[in-house]
Design a protein around this nucleic acid. Structure first.
Lengths: 338, 338
DNA sequence: ATGAAAGCGCTAACAA
DNA sequence: TTGTTAGCGCTTTCAT
């Protein structure tokens, strides 16, 4: 570093106070929406703020208030895979819309297993008021460590084997519906490309699927796991076709994996849905433009992001009696593939 | 708010100083990698930091240092569309890897046209030291406003009609190669699904494409624009087929749009590549598992993210003679679709 | 090469 | 309802 960047920001709170004809405290009260401020004073302060183009210094607020005014979005995925997923994009939009208008910044952090310790140190040092967790895997040491330091946390997606508050889609019921739909079509040899074994989303969708098949008195032995990438969906589909060339339906536990599965089906000359019916999960942006358009289970990921954020902020605000976990509904969307 | 969240973080700099047997100043110097610290003192401080699990309070650092120690990633896209794009995911990974180990946080901000003013006020108030811009559209008022307040900025992707520093893939050359490849296959009626008209990436890829066709003495009149969504790719493909049922090749200016285009081609009974050859752009995660696997132009988006970040940090560090803009190479990846 | 002291701009008691 | 007074934890002169 040859020289360090410095910025000389605009007006301070003191100038706002002067222009408004009140004290710094009053300005602070207005900024923080506190009570005990006369309408007149409030108005004057707002006018002064607008006139001067004032924006409070977050660093000073955090320091004095012993509050970071920021939350972290922790993406715990070694490969950053989830970032490419429309799921993540939707969640991000939801988080953002819930944060809009509040004086809260969103810090993006990616957690590699190697530096989980650093991350925890950072998060425990008051830089953020809470954290949103996404794409948690079963064995992630992050959750217990965060629990230990007492940082308020909400997970997007049920975490395996831990008890932090979470918001999730009703994956079980969604997968159940998928299986029922395929069974109702008269399919008898129904396979599934399941999600990762070490994630609840994988386990839950698989459970729902199995339940649906057992309802229909069908065997649920055709199971291959993928990791929410198109490649893994393709590989799993190849394996399934190899083991059961006669399969007539497949539930792929994520649209993004269904893309790969569809490719393999085409490559092997299977017609969709005539020979093999396919149901996905998510109703992501790829479902409608898949070849053929994908029948899938819809979940509202933006709502998921909003709900996670609401839950975390409510906890930060000291609200009591908050539900430890929330399940969002899913629904079947029928297109051409099944 | 019934109650406000507060956190009582770990050790302060003072305790580190005590344990290390030096003054706060010395600890500060070590933290900031300054000169004039004896090896002995440095060592003692590092030991103390490790022993106490100390992490400096960013708010205090920013306040005292008149520096935010943070940069913003501004996604200027009304719909948040770009978030779902593997392009964005890659850029994010690149940014993150370049930031790793530096004491810099990444703030994620989404800019809606409606609140550009608020955003600019925020950015100009010293909350961040600089900004990375992504997915800039031609008419975005953000860029001139940012230029005016003098915030260091680097754009990912060439901005239209403004002169901020940027890093971009060599879109022109990439598209040129795509066109040449299709021409070299003997295709005569070559169409293109171009990117948005109001983005340089759209214009540049279209220019390269046209140049390639003119080299081959072919007409480049079959042009439809999309907006980097699969749906738009499908719609553009339909239009092209309607206008020119005899087309035998198409260059789709983004893999993510090619997904939609491929669906339409299949639906209309066109075999790929026998009847219509398809070349995409990006070599995103979808290219290899498209139906059929997509021949495409590869760009290294992670490198793009790293380079943008490097460029911004170098400027913040006061380095001189930095290139105003940088172009990253692209390359043709041949798969089955062309 | 190191330490002492003075703030950075704000919020949070407390007093009025 | 409002103003006054201390800090929040760090960086940064300025001495030494």
């Amino acid at each position: 570093m040859t020289e360090t960047a410095k910025r000389r920001p605009g007006p301070r709170i003191e100038e706002v106070a002067r222009v408004a004809g009140v004290s710094k405290s009053t300005v602070s009260r207005v900024i923080n929406d506190e009570q005990y401020v006369s309408a007149k004073a409030r108005e004057a302060v707002h006018a002064a703020i607008a006139q001067l183009g004032y924006s409070p210094n977050q660093a000073a607020r955090s320091l004095a208030g012993n509050r970071a005014n920021a939350i972290a979005l922790v993406v715990s995925e070694p490969t950053g895979r989830v970032l490419s997923d429309p799921f993540f994009a939707g969640v991000l939009r939801g988080i953002h819309s819930e944060l809009a208008g509040r004086h809260m910044q969103l810090l993006l952090m990616m957690s590699q297993p190697a530096d989980t310790g650093d991350l925890v140190t950072y998060l425990s040092s008051g830089h953020v008021d809470g954290a949103l967790l996404v794409s948690l895997h079963g064995d992630d040491p992050l959750v217990p460590m965060l629990a230990e330091i007492g940082l308020p946390v909400v997970s997007g997606g049920r975490p395996l084997g831990t008890t932090v508050p979470f918001v999730d889609a009703d994956n079980f019921t969604g997968a159940l519906e998928a299986a029922r739909h395929l069974a109702s079509l008269g399919r008898k040899r129904i396979a599934t490309v399941a999600g990762p074994k070490d994630m609840a989303v994988g386990a839950d969708r698989l459970s729902g699927f199995k339940r649906g098949l057992s309802e229909a008195r069908l065997s649920a032995d055709l199971v291959e796991h993928g990791d929410f990438t198109p490649e893994s969906g393709a590989k799993a589909m190849e394996l399934l076709l190899c083991k059961a060339p006669d399969l007539d339906a497949v539930f792929v536990a994520a649209d993004i994996m269904a893309l790969g599965a569809l490719q393999v089906l085409h490559a092997q000359g299977k017609r969709v849905p005539e020979d093999v019916a396919v149901v996905g999960f998510d109703d992501s942006v790829f479902a409608a433009t898949a070849t053929p358009p994908l029948t899938t289970i819809r979940q509202d990921v933006e709502e998921l992001g909003r709900t996670m954020t609401w839950r975390l902020l409510a906890e930060l605000a000291g609200e009591h009696g908050l539900p430890p976990s929330l399940l969002l509904p899913t629904s079947l969307v029928v297109r051409s593939s099944a």
